[in-house]
Design a protein around this nucleic acid. Sequence first.
RNA 1: GGGCGAAUAGCUCAGUGGUAGAGCGCCGCCCUUACAAGGCGGAUGUCGGGGGUUCGACACCCUCUUCGCCCACCA
Length: 881
Amino acid sequence: MDSPSEIPKHYDPKASRLKYYPHWEEKGYFKGDPNKPGESFSIVIPPPNVTGSLHMGHALNNTLQDILIRYRKMDGYNTVWIPGTDHASIAVHWVLERKFKEEGTSRFEMGREEFLKRAWEFKEEAETNILGQLRALGVACDWSRQRFTMDDGLTNAVREVFVRLYNEGLIYRAERLINWDTVAQTTLSDLEVVHEEGVLGELWSFAYPLADGTGEIIVATTRPETMLGDTAVAVHPEDERYKDLIGKQLKHPITGREFPIIADEILVDPQFGTGAVKVTPAHDPNDFEVGLRHKLPMINLLNKDGTFNENGGPFCGMVRDEVRQAVKTRITELGLDRGTKEHTMNIGRSERSGSIVEPMLSTQWFVKAKPLAAPSLAAVENGFTNFVPTNWENTYYSWLRDIRDWCISRQLWWGHQIPAWHCKDCQEITVCREDPSECAKCGSTNIEQDQDILDTWFSSALWPFSTMGWPEKTDELAKWYPTATLTTGFDIIFFWVARMMMFGQYFMGHVPFKDVYIHALIRDEHGEKMSKTKGNVVNPLDMIEKYGCDGFRFTLAAFAAQGRDVRWDESRAAGYNKFVNKIWQAFRFTMGNLDNTQVVPKVTPHGVYDRWIRHQMRLAIGDLREALENYRFNDAAAALYQFIWDEFCDWYLELSKPILYGKGTATEADKESVQATLIEIFNALARAMHPIMPFFSEELWQQLPETEGSIMNASFPKVEDFEEAPQAAAEMVFLKDVVGSIRRIRADYQVVPKQQIKALIRTDEKHLQWLRAHEQSLQTLARTSFEPLDGSAPEKVATQVVDGAEIFVELSDLIDLEDERERLKKDLEKVEKDLATLNKQLSNENFIQRAPQAVVEEKQQLLGLATEKKGHLEDALNRLA
RNA sequence: GGGCGAAUAGCUCAGUGGUAGAGCGCCGCCCUUACAAGGCGGAUGUCGGGGGUUCGACACCCUCUUCGCCCACCA
């Protein structure tokens, strides 16, 4: 029925992907079942934002998770991979508001209801898009469990968490100094403020006159406009220069307000500047603390949009930069300017809008962080959760140790509205699970829900358990929480990982994941971070189109060394695409050399090559498993690559040819042994490569004889499936050496490749026996016959010395004795160098005594071989002399 | 100011104390019926510098140089 010609000449990755993915999904192979047996291995996807499209980070991240899930599933674990998306509050706002701007409108103009309608429409579209792209990657997500951070279940979980934390005093509402984004018009958490370093600015000094007219005090600032909100000048209590001034009143030269000179040893460094500091409690974090300590008035200068309010006096209605200039002008006019110095400083900008963040006094909701952080620190210290690579622990620790309260309220609309109701009669706040109809304190029905929404990371922090049905007690939580591994980038260790730890421990009593694998950041070929604005983004879908999904995934795995970042190098993708082709061609060869492509010959492999390649397969499986279990994806890729290309294709397939073609002494039984081995190796290989190359391996699996169902449900090969064969391995080392030597002679002397050669080989009985057994292989791989040599070698020969034999090839006219001498000398130098190293080591008493016995023996053996080789090379040289 | 990381072949990068590796590129030869998207052979390294630990260091420790990243409220 099946003939070899039915296997296409090239693998079609797109066809396989379009064929198998829907099939897997339809058959329910991605579905997890918490009631099935098997040790749990669960993953929750880092939910992609419903804003953009798949980028290289997603591709890497999800490929690695898919590798883990597929591997564990094949290995008998009860696996599930829960997918979903994140509503990405501020990111969606930002995208939409830019869109609205183009349309000539804004969210404020259209109002909350219309905005949310548009946001949901946008979400649907974006979600469909990115989930489709994820599917194109081949991910084995359980789509029946797909969640969204704003779906009903998760919204319910968010409310439950909020209410409990509020009731337990871990969420509170207070007036604090917060970060204000004047463009997005919302608060930001500290993490959403990015600090731009080394910005060249100026430090401007001016004088505040004493109210009684007896003098002045000079202060300096990088933000002159804030002086409108100054309510004190602070000096160090021990500073002799100012001791007499403490307690005196200053008169504000613009607003006319009077305020005191105070002493504060925390704020003031007497060595810096003039040693006197202007204090603006409503617009500077340090000054705010001073304000609390000294009960200073706090004057808020800003409107939500960043314009100055009535407290700005004459500058009311102007924006920051205008006020800054106007203040300086006015002060100069008043004769109070005391000079300007260049000054490098840091500027905080909004991660999203890029606007300069204004510290501002405002009443907001906060999560009390310290009590939540302590257990999360301990959990990693005690190894309940492990970072891979471990050095990321330090990053995690350092943030949690100095954690500050988390401002969670946002003046945005797309997100979870805060479940708090303000009573307009008694001002009391009612926080509860069900929407209340009246104030909990006074019973008034004149209540209104808080207009703010929660920071988008609040719901993300619940992801590992909210996706499993919490707060209900579900089978999913019982089986799959905690999850096995979180795979993510280092950039969200604080935003997300740490907060999942805190909330997971608080609400579930256990850490949310056993391992946190921090993967590399993929940069462009110049080492630059990929970004749309730079235009250096590599689109994963283009790569899938170009190199096939399997080749692309293999490339990502091969890139994923445990480091910090990697540079994208498309030539490697091209290389691994060739690798896929190489396997495909080997597969065609295999299938083309079966007598019946439906049946596996029922024989035990007995040939020496069969035993050798099975031995190599055993080693490769061991390496592969170890790599996968330790998140060493690049080692896993290398183990496959090396075995398939260097051992299986380059040697085993070539060695198998004469046997399959019945050449030499090969019998029908030998042929069947090879056929059985080929199929068995391919069968195991398909399964071994499946986690990395799901579609390609399925394609092989479907064509291989006597396979059933999908490869997704097959088992991952075990080391014990293939027995050791040290004898065959030793024989192959020798054979490879001999073949290599003869090939080298051919290349060195440009012997016409088809020309038959006869080698004279001087060796011992054991090696001679081996040579006789491999006569056919020497013929096929090196086109050489051989004769044992007893006495001395003829004059005009090319010589090669290998471990266990001396090889001479008579080339009569072709031989150039001068060249030959040079080559031999070079070989000799190399051996002598090795020998010197070995001799030095072995003559060192300390080495003999202290090095492990095995190492010493190995060196002694190497010394013996090198000595023998040296002798043989010298003999050869002497003959030519 | 604190913390983390990197420096290995022309390029991009692996390397887990025991004689330096891969891919791409380069130089020869070869269309041998699985694969020219291939085969065979070859060249290329002061493993950033300097100390130290060790029988032995590319690997561990210290230090310096260069580059990168993260965190931080110094006016």
